[in-house]
Design a protein around this nucleic acid. Structure first.
Length: 205
DNA sequence: TCGCGGATGAACT
DNA sequence: GTTCATCCGCGAG
């Protein structure tokens, strides 16, 4: 388990969705389960803003996406494509629908449990991609709406590791507003998802 | 390394 | 009935 984990306070979270998506790169995701604690360093995120056609909040609040409209720092978890859960963190004030999608993490501790959860032993495949990340960390709808700036089954932390270099690209897997450069990832990190071309393109920019 | 298509379930129109 | 912020396995280059 990584040492010196300090819980992230809501006050520490940047108040702007894009700033928060960048800031989260390098933070530690902590998942407490009955079988032990799982932690991983966040290496890839995407920002979903209000008035963003690719965002679930674009057409207003619904029962599914209500967690996007909570105070920043709460989990928004949903199920998609019949196979995958997605973990997001709400990123604005109450009433504003926005969130940061957590797309990939570098496993730090609880790796054996993650391997069991995923049915896979390859370290770089455990949490590379949002669906895999949720499966590795045992995240489902039961965690939707919980406060990630408070003690509980799922929370955010920082450690003493120095800041990672962050690159930018277009987002992955969307059909609307495809040109916005709202994907952020740790440069040259093996746990980041997406095609290589996307990474190279972003670096050249 | 890439691009393709099937699986699969829930929200929304 | 359609859409979807995905994963996996497969085959081509």
């Amino acid at each position: 388990m990584p040492l010196q984990l300090k819980p992230v306070t809501r006050r520490a979270l940047p108040k702007d969705t894009i700033a928060m998506a960048q800031w989260l790169i390098g933070c530690v995701l902590v998942r407490e389960t009955d079988d032990g604690i799982l932690t991983g360093r966040i290496v890839e995120t995407e920002a979903y803003l209000p008035d963003d056609a690719a965002s679930h909040s674009y057409r207003g609040q619904t029962p599914r996406n209500r967690s996007m409209f909570t105070k920043r720092g709460h989990a928004y978890v949903y199920f998609i494509y019949g196979r995958s859960f997605m973990l997001n963190i709400s990123s604005e004030d109450i009433g504003i629908g926005a969130a940061v999608l957590i797309r990939a993490a570098e496993p730090l501790s609880g790796i054996e449990q993650m391997q069991r959860n995923r049915g896979c032993n390859v370290l770089t495949d455990l949490a590379r991609g949002p669906g895999r990340l949720a499966q590795a960390f045992k995240i489902d709808r039961s965690l939707d709406g919980i406060d990630m700036c408070a003690p509980g089954p799922l929370w955010l932390a920082r450690d003493a590791v120095k800041a990672l270099t962050v690159d930018t690209s277009t987002r992955i897997g969307i059909t609307q507003n495809v040109d916005a450069l709202w994907r952020f990832y740790a440069k040259d990190n093996a746990h980041v998802s997406g095609p290589k071309a996307l990474r190279v393109k972003a670096v050249k920019k």
